[in-house]
Design a protein around this nucleic acid. Structure first.
Lengths: 140, 140
DNA sequence: TCATTTTATAGAACTATTCTAAATTGGGAT
DNA sequence: ATCCCAATTTAGAATAGTTCTATAAAATGA
């Protein structure tokens, strides 16, 4: 890892308090698309007393500064996506889990529209996850 | 219009109560991607006493039967999209309004994935809406 | 008509998030 | 070091869309 969480925060113009670093350590480096609640659990492993309000404040701050995006899967299920490099998403129909897809795994093009200025193209693939071939941990 | 709302409901296996028809009349034929609240307002124009619970019950029923989809724009802003024919979406950055795009205005292809079975491809374009050329109703 | 099931309803309950107001912290300047 | 001030954190209340519950009303059909 070339950049510490502290560095990333500073570069984004965020002063790196211990709470913010504790949150960043997890949320900026996970590919798991956690909810605020899951962030809370992970952050408390590093900083046991951290409050719910701080989790929300900090996640919103990270979003405002472009470090995260929100993904609203359904009412009462919002999830955070680390803005590492551009990517697309696959969402599992059964579990709802989100997976990142390499940007070049999907090719998109679109017409020019008179009335719309396109800034960004988001692609979500949905479907089923196949049982894995290397049958890892079948045994309990 | 070739099919009445009643017909559409019957074909979907939903018995067409007056409440359901009142809701269907609006929500299955609008391109406005309304929230539950907006559906309530419109349904009450047709059936003044209809209850909030019925709006939610019915919208959920329509979703289960494939007549609608939900679109969760953010926490506390869920919107319903009539499943007429397949289409993509444009979302206005400023207003949050959703517009349908013809399916062939966007071309997408993707790799095959070992571990994912793709059932559906959703594309959302985001950006700004241009001021309209025919300057309709500039004057108040 | 009566019995049974389906549908609708009011209002309470729920839950993720935001708000509020007070407490704590940390980084200069002296 | 100590003081000050702004930034940050915090607990808990408030908010708002949705779901739940249990009752009532309506439709079905024998």
């Amino acid at each position: 890892m070339s950049q510490t969480s502290t560095d990333i925060l500073r570069e984004a113009g965020i002063s790196p308090s211990s709470q913010r670093v504790a949150i960043a350590e997890f949320v900026l480096h996970t590919g798991s698309h956690p909810s605020a609640d899951e962030v809370l659990v992970q952050a408390r492993k590093r900083l046991p007393g951290i409050s719910v309000a701080t989790i929300y404040n900090t996640l919103n701050l990270f979003v405002e500064h472009g470090l995260l995006r929100t993904f609203s899967l359904s009412q009462n299920h919002t999830v955070y996506d680390a803005c590492t490099d551009p990517h697309h998403h696959f969402i599992d129909d059964e579990t709802g889990r989100i997976h990142d897809l390499p940007i070049d795994a999907v090719r998109v093009s679109h017409d020019n529209f008179d009335d719309f200025d396109i800034r960004e193209v988001q692609v979500v693939l949905r479907g089923r996850t196949n049982p894995q071939n290397p049958p890892a941990k079948l045994a309990k």
